[in-house]
Write a protein that binds this DNA or RNA. Structure first.
Lengths: 148, 148
DNA sequence: CCTTTACATTTGTCTATACAATTGTTGTCG
DNA sequence: CGACAACAATTGTATAGACAAATGTAAAGG
């Protein structure tokens, strides 16, 4: 990936600015690949993320604020996101008996099955995106990302 | 930035998955900082990007497809984006005389002046985001990003 | 010329997201 | 207890973005 070529500029960018643009370009590529991988399942990246969180609860229900807290990209209204998962039969929701302000949300068996299929497609995408990296380079990248 | 802590998971993620999540988390942080920096100017990141492209033309007008081509994040409708810049008096647009299918878009003096102010705020943000990095680390990061 | 094809931009429409206001519930303190 | 603050989720609304269809213009081929 050549930054200058992609954004068609001849002038030399300061390294800081170049890094930022570079970062965004790579992110766009990643997002594109992911949404392509998710398209056949008719599920958004956010919905996929929530499903993974719900599965991570291992039988325990999650409430909305828990989900929000754990989401990679925080959303302003997770309610409607969960609505869609429920509509698809991948999750269910009820009012929390101990605290009626809260709701409890759980992944359904159907949701789990679907998620397994999606996981496969997603991890294939991840591997494809990262195929040019050695294990050491991945560690290096993670270490650099930690500095942000 | 500790990935596992942020998304509140105890289990060890495979390095590929961890890298992807890490990447997205950092991107969110960057985006947040940028939109904060741009907020006082009431301009979106995309609009800012287009303004920079227009300035990069150095007097020559740009047409829509040129802008689209050079944008960091490609947009489906750049028309309406330019509309907003025109509304703010930062750009002007007319039909291309040689080829009436095309339009010619130029940054105005007003737009240039505003852009200079925004540039300052943005580069301060960039520096702040990257303050933990040595020059060598920035080069390293750029080299790794190239591998995508 | 006239029809067809390709091109460049614009418009329509539907969905996603951001942000604020609202609803319903619980906890606290005089 | 009763008023009020704090909490959790939902709803309303306005804006941004994705995608497809439509418009207007130019080029190509018979």
């Amino acid at each position: 990936m050549n930054v200058e070529e992609i954004i068609k500029t001849e002038k030399k960018l300061p390294i800081e600015q170049r890094t930022m643009i570079h970062y965004a370009l790579v992110f766009n590529k990643i997002r594109e690949e992911f949404s392509l991988a998710l398209k056949p399942f008719e599920i958004s990246e956010q919905q996929f993320n929530v499903l993974r969180i719900l599965r991570g609860q291992k039988g325990k229900p999650a409430n909305l604020s828990t989900i929000n807290e754990r989401m990679v990209t925080k959303m302003s209204n997770t309610t409607r996101l969960v609505d869609k998962l429920i509509l698809k039969g991948f999750a269910e929701r009820w009012v929390c008996p101990e605290n009626r302000r809260k709701v409890e949300i759980m992944i359904t068996d159907n949701g789990k099955k679907e998620l397994e299929k999606i996981d496969l497609a997603v991890s294939r995408t991840e591997e494809r995106l990262l195929q040019g990296f050695s294990h050491q380079e991945l560690e290096q990248l993670n270490a650099l990302l930690d500095k942000f």
